[in-house]
Amino acid sequence: MSPKFETLILDENENIAWITLNRPSRLNALSDMMLSELSVVFDYLASTENRVIVISGAGRAFSAGYDIAPDSEEVGYAHTRHPVEDRNRQLSNIDLFMKIWRHPVPVITAVHGYCMAGATQLCVFSDITIVAEDAVIAASPAIPIGGGFISPLWATVTGPKRAKLMSFDAGHRIDGMTAVSWGWATQAVPADDLISHVKSLAKSIARTPLSILTLKKEAINRVAELQGLVSIARIGAETDALLHLTPEVQALQESIKTHGLKAAIAKFNESN
């Protein structure tokens, strides 16, 4: 029997497992609970006969990234924590994404609406990313409360100069077509066709036996890992923990706690 979730919807049909991020009122922001449930669902799916996994988002966004609003259960950004605890917390997120990366079957991310910051990490660790042409994609939040956790992963798929653009310019956004031309995404399709296209692709992939898919995925993953993907991901967590200790970032964290996220972003934009 498949597990039940509060922040995810899991549907299994015809050797395809479809995971829907289901916090639409928060644009599917990645809360502690959602991250924990993603870990549970991938552990469960590792013991099934599914040949493809798809991750999509409910409502008008794929995901707004880590939930950094002051009223969120996620306390990693708007609150102070010990630097080692901070680093370990972020490494635990990398461990989750590695479950996706090393899962025995292909994982497709279907991106529509907003895909921001931490949500782009999830996509980098998936095997195929199909985006709506008008999707809004950003590697960093609109307020610079960290830096180094997410953007280094972008460099592995887009190259360092584009990763620097996305990192240095807080909240810099690109659309789905640009994401494909940069190499961050696999294909872009009209928004209205996204789900039908991904369903068709998943069904086509699922024609191949599980053992063949597993070995093909492992072979390609080894190339990326030899190029340093895993080390780069862990370095990012350490860099971010250091940046969270800077007076500038702590001041922005305090602004989020005091004024709320939207007001803190507005104040940052007005003062710079």
Rank of each mutant, 00 (worst) to 15 (best):
residue 237 A to V: 00
residue 161 K to W: 10
residue 110 A to E: 12
residue 83 P to G: 06
residue 257 K to W: 11
residue 64 A to Y: 06
residue 185 A to P: 00
residue 100 I to K: 02
residue 136 V to F: 00
residue 82 H to Y: 04
residue 193 D to E: 15
residue 238 E to Y: 01
residue 22 N to S: 15
residue 227 Q to L: 15
residue 95 D to A: 15
residue 177 M to I: 07
residue 9 I to G: 07
residue 113 G to Y: 01
residue 143 I to Q: 04
residue 38 L to V: 11
residue 83 P to Q: 06
residue 5 F to K: 05
residue 227 Q to V: 09
residue 225 E to A: 11
residue 231 S to L: 10
residue 82 H to W: 02
residue 207 R to N: 15
residue 121 Q to S: 04
residue 167 S to N: 07
residue 127 D to A: 05
residue 74 E to N: 14
residue 195 I to Q: 12
residue 163 A to T: 05
residue 66 Y to P: 09
residue 17 A to T: 03
residue 100 I to M: 07
residue 224 A to N: 14
residue 58 A to R: 14
residue 262 K to C: 01
residue 1 M to T: 02
residue 139 A to S: 08
residue 267 K to Q: 04
residue 150 I to W: 01
residue 80 T to N: 12
residue 201 L to I: 12
residue 216 K to N: 14
residue 87 R to P: 06
residue 102 R to F: 08
residue 146 G to K: 02
residue 174 I to L: 08
residue 224 A to T: 11
residue 247 P to N: 07
residue 210 L to R: 15
residue 189 V to K: 13
residue 261 L to V: 02
residue 182 W to L: 13
residue 94 I to R: 05
residue 142 A to F: 11
residue 78 A to H: 06
residue 206 A to D: 13
residue 25 S to A: 15
residue 13 N to W: 10
residue 126 S to R: 00
residue 181 S to M: 13
residue 233 A to H: 04
residue 93 N to G: 05
residue 63 S to G: 09
residue 230 V to R: 09
residue 225 E to G: 08
residue 270 E to Y: 01
residue 188 A to G: 05
residue 227 Q to A: 14
residue 131 V to D: 00
residue 110 A to R: 02
residue 91 L to T: 08
residue 47 S to M: 08
residue 67 D to M: 02
residue 77 Y to R: 07
residue 185 A to N: 00
residue 271 S to I: 08
residue 4 K to P: 09
residue 249 V to N: 13
residue 208 T to P: 00
residue 271 S to P: 02
residue 53 I to K: 02
residue 226 L to V: 11
residue 58 A to S: 15
residue 212 I to M: 15
residue 200 S to L: 10
residue 221 N to Q: 15
residue 108 I to Q: 12
residue 40 V to L: 07
residue 20 T to I: 11
residue 215 L to C: 08
